[in-house]
Amino acid sequence: MLNERERTRGGRTALRPRLVAAGWDYLVIAAWLALLAAVFVPLSRAGAGFGGLGALGTDLLITALSVLPVGAYLVMGEAGRRRATWGKRRAGLVVALGGGGRPGAARIVARALVKLLPWQCAHMAVSRLVRDPDSAVAMPLLVAAYALAGASVVLVLTRRDRAALHDLVTATRVVPSP
């Protein structure tokens, strides 16, 4: 049963804490990406080209440097003792099962995979468009990225419990911390 802090008018779960948590977490992610840019932009300008990696090599490099560290941040926070990333802790939220219990590590990993899938699709689309503007694979990847991200946003905005796509797929919820 949700308490008053968890509800807004009409019995809907409050949206603001979830947005606040996402904002704080995006600051952490942006800081990581800024650090990567601080390292790789000068290297690129100095002639250390990464174009020889090919599409698969580029995908693996992007995944290893950006998606995996962000996924590790999400998993370590949400599978940890506090069941929350830094942003969720600041917003007073935790990740829980539908009944309020603690989700297992495998469920949290799956949650992060679903959450980061649009980002990975977008990376792969952009890397292909940079190499070949006529790439037949780039547009389906870009459409998938926007469709998955858009579906998640629509779900959070329209569902009474504010569950996102990754919550529904893994049967988890973001709820106020006990």
Rank of each mutant, 00 (worst) to 15 (best):
residue 75 V to F: 11
residue 138 A to Y: 04
residue 106 A to R: 13
residue 135 S to L: 04
residue 80 G to R: 11
residue 177 S to W: 03
residue 99 G to M: 08
residue 99 G to Q: 12
residue 104 G to F: 02
residue 151 A to D: 04
residue 117 L to V: 10
residue 146 Y to E: 11
residue 132 D to K: 09
residue 143 V to M: 08
residue 79 A to Y: 14
residue 14 A to Y: 02
residue 67 V to G: 01
residue 163 A to N: 09
residue 143 V to P: 04
residue 41 V to A: 09
residue 32 W to Q: 00
residue 76 M to C: 10
residue 120 Q to R: 02
residue 86 W to I: 12
residue 164 A to C: 07
residue 168 L to F: 01
residue 137 V to R: 06
residue 67 V to Y: 02
residue 167 D to C: 12
residue 91 A to G: 05
residue 9 R to I: 07
residue 9 R to P: 06
residue 116 L to I: 11
residue 75 V to D: 11
residue 148 L to P: 03
residue 98 G to C: 07
residue 86 W to E: 03
residue 44 S to L: 10
residue 49 G to R: 09
residue 56 L to C: 11
residue 135 S to E: 01
residue 138 A to V: 04
residue 107 R to Q: 13
residue 71 G to R: 14
residue 68 L to F: 14
residue 47 G to I: 13
residue 25 D to H: 13
residue 34 A to E: 08
residue 33 L to K: 00
residue 121 C to W: 11
residue 170 T to P: 05
residue 82 R to Q: 14
residue 11 G to V: 00
residue 73 Y to L: 02
residue 19 L to R: 10
residue 86 W to C: 05
residue 110 A to Q: 05
residue 71 G to D: 15
residue 93 L to A: 11
residue 52 G to E: 08
residue 137 V to P: 01
residue 136 A to G: 10
residue 33 L to D: 00
residue 127 S to V: 08
residue 90 R to E: 04
residue 120 Q to A: 09
residue 36 L to T: 01
residue 39 V to M: 06
residue 113 L to I: 13
residue 103 P to S: 09
residue 106 A to I: 05
